[in-house]
Design a protein around this nucleic acid. Structure first.
Length: 282
DNA sequence: ATTTCATCCTGGAGGC
DNA sequence: TGCCTCCAGGATGAAA
């Protein structure tokens, strides 16, 4: 499930591999993954992209944006199981490849996504790698704060709510990039129960949580993200952060801090993992 | 306006 | 062994 660290890793590897490459063809094998203005006319977008070159690859929240020297950018949301794989066009396509770009030198970038929650947008963009304008023009939900730039004050405002803390951290329109794994890990590091009410969190605890979010994400980026089953970077490699997880999917195992067995329960509609001792209910 | 809820999907796990 | 059912998980759009 690509969250911010996984998407950042994908972006970094794509930057090394496809910037400057000229597009030979773009093909959508499952049209219903396309959203936005080109939803029912992806071929039109493809025609605009042919013979254009990749100029930049960026990330915003969990979204990946590939800029070109045409007026179209390609925006990808990976959903649960989506991944980009780099290779050559001589390898046969499997049934889960729903979209691919052929480059010069027979290089090929494939979107492989068994569960098909991933989505692709072709979007007009006014300038090279102009993120804000791109987002404004897009027919898609607006994204919240980028975690690394959040100030202590902004974060406290984020928590000024009667909603469950986990719900807020997962809400992409408030803060963009966190998914189930990194929310659970951040809450553990901050010593907060995932089911607590956000507004009840003391300012000092809120600041601890903000720092936990940043450090968990940064650490996960450095370690190549987390692979449970599906995630791979563009080279097909697994993330190395899994063994550094302290609570996620570790129910029954001893808490790394106090040895109490980690518990799992459904909070905010998601499987939630926490130490009942280090993360007390109130 | 804000928040909750069903829906989309398939591979893998577990039951029998 | 094999068939069946159940379920995770993120984002969306409808409903409350």
């Amino acid at each position: 499930m690509p969250e911010l660290p996984e998407v950042e890793n994908i972006a970094q590897s794509l930057r090394d591999e496809i910037i400057g490459l000229k597009i030979k063809d773009v093909c959508v094998r499952r049209p219903n993954i396309i959203r936005g203005a080109y939803m029912r006319q992806w071929r039109k977008a493809a025609d605009k992209l042919i013979n254009r070159a990749i100029t930049a690859v960026t990330r915003r929240g969990k979204r990946l944006i590939i800029f070109t020297d045409s007026d179209l950018a390609i925006l990808v949301q990976f959903g649960m199981t989506g991944k980009f794989l780099l290779g050559t066009n001589s390898v046969p396509l499997d049934k889960h490849t729903h979209f691919y770009i052929n480059f010069m030198f027979d290089r090929q970038l494939r979107l492989v996504d068994p569960r098909r929650f991933g989505r692709v947008w072709f979007m007009e963009h006014p300038g090279q790698s102009n993120l804000d304008q791109t987002m404004l023009n897009a027919g898609m939900s607006k994204l919240g704060l980028e975690p690394f730039g959040v100030t202590a004050r902004q974060f406290r405002q984020l928590l000024d709510s009667k909603r469950v803390i986990k719900t807020i951290l997962l809400d992409q329109t408030r803060i963009a990039g966190l998914g189930n794994i990194y929310v659970d890990e951040s809450l553990f590091r901050a010593g907060l129960h995932p089911g607590g009410i956000a507004a009840d969190i003391e300012p000092a605890q809120a600041e601890k949580l903000r720092r936990a979010v940043v450090s968990v994400l940064k650490s996960a980026i450095i370690h190549g993200g987390t692979t449970f089953s599906d995630f791979r970077n563009a080279y097909g490699e697994m993330g190395r952060f899994r063994r550094r997880l302290k609570v996620y999917q570790r129910q029954g195992s001893p808490c790394p801090r106090c040895k109490t067995p980690i518990e799992r329960m459904v909070i905010a509609g998601r499987g939630s993992h926490f130490c009942p001792e280090c993360q007390p209910k109130k």
